[in-house]
Amino acid sequence: MNILVLVKQTPDTESKIKLNSDNTAIETGDLKYIINPYDEYAIEEAIKLSEKFADSKVTLICLGNAALKETTETLRKGLAMGASDAILIDAAGLNTACPYLTANAIYQNISSLKYDIILSGMKAVDDDYSCVPTLLAGMLNIPAVTAIVKLTVSPDQKTAECEREGESGREVLISSLPALFSAQKGLNEPRYPSLKGIMAAKKKEIANKKAEAVSPKIKIVKLSTPPPRPAGKIVKGDFPNNVKELASLLRSEAKVI
């Protein structure tokens, strides 16, 4: 079975994000990068499937700035977890702030590849758009099932049963393959790369690709930071008087009860 996994690097979720002086970009100097957390679930699921089905291949696809070491580090980590191949599409010169353009750049590079399943994270924790999986699946004309928490591929590899959190409960769906699935937390517990995996990943080739730029459909005019929240007050006094005082403040001062 051929599985493609869309991955990208994002700033660590514990990072503070600061803007540059003219509010057009974030300061990246001190940032620590990680694999987008949702993409780790996608990689893990792909590797689990490759262990279950003989002769499987897991190819990581990353659209990122090829000149940055964080981009290749992301791919190396995915390879160390157990992926077989990696393709890096150079995003230099592309306006990746537009999900349509991002999906299109990936589409250009994967439409001719053989695949049964495409896995991705349900969103990237940097731009928080969550649009690329659905847009890409539309371009490839394959079904997209988003935010899945369970995936079971049939023994004949023609269909997959999956589960996702819907509005009225947990939805159980059956999709024909090929299809795209985006991963929600809860799908699996991503493994740590083994030492052997890390050593093997160092030797693997990363295929470098390019994409033709198309016109972006949306554009970021500027960035801003949310207004800081003013510090509140600690309700003093002994228990239970402090709780009584809090309850009365919620009614008389905050007027929320």
């Binding site: 803007l19 702030a97 016109s215 459909k217 949306i218 554009k219 005019v221 500027k222 930071t225």
Partner: peptide
Amino acid sequence: GEFVAVHPMYAGKIRAHIKFENQPGG
């Protein structure tokens, strides 16, 4: 006169002010 939507990024640490670029509708 451009319509702009404010979208939180990095889980709300940053806000992006986004417009449609050369679009008839959105």
